[in-house]
């Protein structure tokens, strides 16, 4: 049974020469959305799928969920071919900009998706309780989803993806359209999911976010994989060295620079590290939020 070519069950995702072509008959052209993609995701890692809009990220995820059929190639999830129902038992999916059923409230939504995964009774009740807490939606349980904010929708989406305790999660642009704080919370959740032993594959075109949480990434462009590897390997500039020091006077800086040049270092530059705009935003807003909390609140004359 086991040939050298058989899929490996220790890999969360294995993709071999996956290709998706769309015929455009009225233009007499063929659009290649995904082109000979080879990719592996290991168990327990957070994998970032990067690329500009239209680079084939969503198409790839859809093929992994058997929502569309590949024109060529094969893919497996934990060794199961993706077009089997068994493959989907181990997978949770959050689509891009999800809407869900507007007329259901948070609780009913999770109950519905739990039912689809074959759950019922106390096991389902407990799971809903646990997930509502995990994604922090205690205030959204009884509200219909039509009254949810973008960030809340994304969180209920994450909860429904997790309802049947899948080992692998596909998140398509999980932070698209969410404000920086909500976006931060989703990133924290991804990290927590990894700590719980889940494998997470997520697509994004917001690079900084990917950098913060992903172990490994692949960058796609026009349907082709351009780069794949661990972030650390990809981002370390091998022939450069960086020092960061506090309270170093300009004179001392000059001395250090001369010393480096004496020892053969070239192209020395001296500057102060900068916060990213996002870090500044979060620092500012979180300070303000903490100050608003009861107990920390500043004395005020307003009633």
């Amino acid at each position: 049974m086991s040939t050298p070519d058989s899929p490996k069950t220790d890999l969360a995702v294995e993709i071999r020469s996956l290709t998706k072509r769309y015929a455009l008959p009225w233009k007499r052209k063929v659009l290649v959305a995904v082109d000979q993609l080879n990719l592996t995701v290991r168990r327990g890692e957070v994998f970032g799928l990067l690329g500009p809009n239209g680079s084939g990220k969503s198409t790839t995820l859809k093929m992994l969920l058997s929502l569309i059929k590949p024109s060529e190639g094969e893919a497996w999830i934990f060794g199961q071919p993706v077009d089997t129902i068994e493959a989907r038992r181990t997978v949770g999916f959050l689509p891009e900009n999800p809407y869900f059923y507007k007329f259901l409230n948070g609780d009913e939504t999770l109950r519905f998706y739990g039912g689809l995964a074959g759950m019922q009774g106390i096991a389902l009740d407990n799971k809903i309780e646990e997930l509502i807490k995990l994604v922090g939606l205690e205030n959204g349980r009884d509200r219909p989803l039509s009254a949810y904010s973008k960030g809340m929708l994304q969180r209920i989406g994450l909860a429904q993806a997790l309802i049947h305790d899948p080992e692998l999660l596909f998140l398509d642009e999980p932070t698209a359209g969410v404000d920086p704080i909500g976006s931060r919370e989703i990133r924290d959740l991804i990290v927590r999911l990894r700590d719980m032993g889940k494998t997470v594959v997520f697509s994004s075109h917001l690079l900084e976010q990917v950098q913060e949480v992903a172990d490994r990434v692949a960058i796609m462009s026009l349907g082709k994989k351009m780069v794949e590897g661990s972030l650390n390997d990809l981002l370390t500039v091998q022939d450069r060295t960086q020092f960061i020091a506090q309270d170093l006077s300009p004179a001392a800086q000059e001395e250090v620079r001369q010393l480096i040049e004496q020892r053969g270092g070239r192209n020395v530059s001296v500057s102060s590290p900068k916060l990213s705009l996002e870090q500044l935003f979060l620092k500012t807003v979180e300070y303000e939020r903490a100050a608003q909390k009861p107990g920390v609140a500043k004395p005020t004359n307003e009633r």
């Binding site: 859809k62 969920l65 129902i85 989907r88 038992r89 689509p95 689809l116 989406g157």
Partner: peptide
């Protein structure tokens, strides 16, 4: 509404 994606991504034929 893309709800069909979330449903068919579950073990549903």
């Amino acid at each position: 509404n893309r709800t069909i994606y979330t449903i068919l991504a579950k073990p549903v034929r």
